[in-house]
């Protein structure tokens, strides 16, 4: 099990905060939420986040003011989250020291990916994931099992990376579809076809890693089912 990061989400919109927290939790992070600046300051000392997702439009002090607070109190990474999309605001956020900038409305998977990228740049999360004798490096796009590289298509690599990120957890076909293919297509057969292709390529080099959980979905797990 690789170490996942501690992420604090500061956002006053309940819906967005809850959704972002859920998505980051699913990606394996330990998460905490706050609705405004004072809540954030409490968590900075007690929760000690590796990364802060920070909304710009907040009641009281705004996100730029809170960015200073984060920078003074910790070395956490910061991803700004805002409805402002003016170039001036983006520049202001980045020059003020934000590590990345996501504009509302955003796709959750993109935010999760950006959080992961910032964590990797900070050295908080390795880009490789290991499941038994399978090693996947999402950044270089290489998957190796028992020392032998796997011949995967781009879609198959994305599928395997997603399952590896969710390793040990059962994921539904819908989850896989939305995470790997996005929201524009809906055809569960896609999942079945690609899962069996990946499974075949994995099993050339060893026992079954990608298991079917009847009625629920799939899980990537080393050892017995």
């Amino acid at each position: 099990m690789i170490s996942q990061a501690r992420v604090l989400v500061v956002e006053d919109s309940d819906a967005i905060r809850a959704a972002v927290l859920a998505a980051l939790r699913d990606a394996g992070h330990t998460v905490e939420g706050a609705g405004d600046g004072s809540g954030m300051e409490r968590h900075l000392d007690t929760f000690r986040p590796d990364l802060v997702v920070l909304d710009v439009m907040l009641p009281g002090r705004d996100g730029f003011a809170l960015l200073d607070v984060v920078r003074r109190h910790s070395d956490a990474g910061v991803v700004m989250l805002t409805a402002r999309d003016g170039v001036a605001d983006r520049l202001r956020g980045l020059t003020a020291g934000a590590d990345d900038y996501v504009v509302k409305p955003f796709v959750l998977a993109e935010l999760v990916a950006r959080v992961a990228a910032v964590l990797r740049r900070m050295g908080r999360a390795p880009s490789t994931v290991e499941v038994g004798d399978l090693v996947i490096d999402a950044e270089s796009g290489v998957a190796v099992r028992a020392g032998a590289p796997l011949e995967l298509t781009a879609t198959e690599l994305r599928l395997l990376s997603y399952l590896a990120a969710q390793r040990g957890r059962v994921v539904s076909k819908t989850q896989i579809l939305t995470a790997v293919w996005g929201y524009d297509a809906y055809d569960p057969n896609l999942v079945e076809v690609h899962v069996s292709a990946v499974r075949r390529k994995l099993e050339i080099h060893g026992p079954r890693l990608l298991h079917t959980v009847r009625g629920l979905g799939y899980v990537l797990r080393a050892g017995p089912t």
Binding site: A15, A19, V20, A23, D26, A109, Q175, A179, L216
Partner: peptide, 11 residues
Amino acid sequence: AAAEAVLQAGP
């Protein structure tokens, strides 16, 4: 965000 979270919540 909420709709995505509902979709992506696992079984």
